[in-house]
């Protein structure tokens, strides 16, 4: 009996402790380091930043910090414009995703029950194939002499090659394409559970289909709309691969800015400051998403 309660107590302590410790060391601590380095000065050295403090020197931790990188971020309006443009591109993409995703999710929810699992699997399957490869596929399609131009010229819709690659339009296409499963699945989950009798009642009482869509379907689908939108918006703001491969040089996005500060300019402190800026922009949507997600998991019980 003694032994049993001992193992129980031991496992009760160990089970949360191991993953807790892992995330603490490899998620939380790295985060604090980013914060610290964003407040230190760059150096031409290996690694290319001047540590503000030695690990043993706590007093120095507060002494050597300055806001130089952040002043630079504020003074140079490049970062301000990049932030605004990221938020704008992500917001427009999320709206487009809703417009494209809703009819698909709605169609899936209305399909005969025996096909639904197959349709869900078909939506998820592209997600399992590499993100990078799926974006690469669009380069060949959107190129000026690419497959889309060839197809449209063949049917006679256009006479001049389309110039979509390296524009913001290509970025929207890329984001909508890559994130579509993240929008469709939460929408489908709420639409599938919807009670059809409500719609029938509305129609019987003389409501038009359009009006019952807006007054019944949309409000009932709201949890899915919110979850899907946040699930797409948050990573889209920090997106790097899509603007880099499909966007033009004028497509400003903050994730791309961070990448080039780090890899091209080798300014680690400034890259860290950009990371903090990106995080400040995203902290509100992330907190909302976490609450929505936690509530969803709780209601599953």
């Amino acid at each position: 009996m003694m032994e049993r309660s001992l193992t129980r107590r031991l496992s009760a302590g160990l089970v949360p402790a191991v993953p807790y410790l892992w995330l603490g060391v490899l998620f939380l601590v790295p985060f604090l380091i980013v914060l610290k380095i964003s407040l230190s000065d760059p150096a031409v050295a290996q690694p290319p930043y001047k540590p503000v403090f030695e690990w043993s020197d706590i007093a120095g931790f507060f002494g050597g910090l300055d806001l130089e990188n952040f002043t630079l971020l504020i003074e140079d309006d490049l970062y301000f414009r990049a932030t605004l443009s990221s938020v704008r591109i992500a917001a427009i993409s999320t709206l487009l995703l809703l417009l494209v995703g809703f009819p698909i999710a709605y169609g899936m929810a209305r399909a005969p029950e025996r096909y639904r699992a197959l349709l869900v699997a078909a939506i998820i399957l592209p997600f399992w194939t590499s993100f990078l490869i799926r974006i690469y596929a669009w380069v060949a399609i959107l190129k000026p002499e690419g497959l889309l131009t060839q197809a449209l010229m063949a049917v006679g819709l256009i006479s001049e090659p389309l110039d979509i690659l390296n524009t913001e339009t290509a970025v929207y296409i890329g984001i909508v394409y890559a994130y579509l499963p993240f929008m469709v699945l939460p929408l489908y989950a709420t639409l599938e559970k919807m009670d059809d009798t409500l719609l029938e009642a509305a129609l019987d009482l003389g409501s038009t289909p359009w009006r019952s869509f807006w007054t019944i379907t949309v409000p009932l689908a709201m949890p899915g709309i919110i979850a899907g939108s946040l699930l797409c918006f948050i990573p889209a703001v920090g997106e790097f691969v899509i603007p880099d491969l499909l966007g033009g040089s004028e497509t400003l996005m903050i994730g791309r800015q961070l990448w080039s500060e780090f890899f091209s300019n080798r300014d680690w402190p400034l890259a860290s400051a950009v990371a903090i800026l990106l995080l400040i922009v995203l902290v509100v949507p992330i907190v909302i998403y976490r609450d929505v997600e936690a509530r969803r998991v709780e209601t599953q019980r």
Binding site: P30, I234, F240, A294
Partner: peptide
């Protein structure tokens, strides 16, 4: 703990990548 479990999933990869690198350095 729940925060640390949910955050990395939505965190932009550039931030996760940079922070881990700085940690390893």
């Amino acid at each position: 703990f729940t925060g640390m479990v949910y955050a990395p999933m939505v965190m932009p990869e550039v931030i996760t990548g940079l922070s881990l690198l700085l940690f390893f350095v």
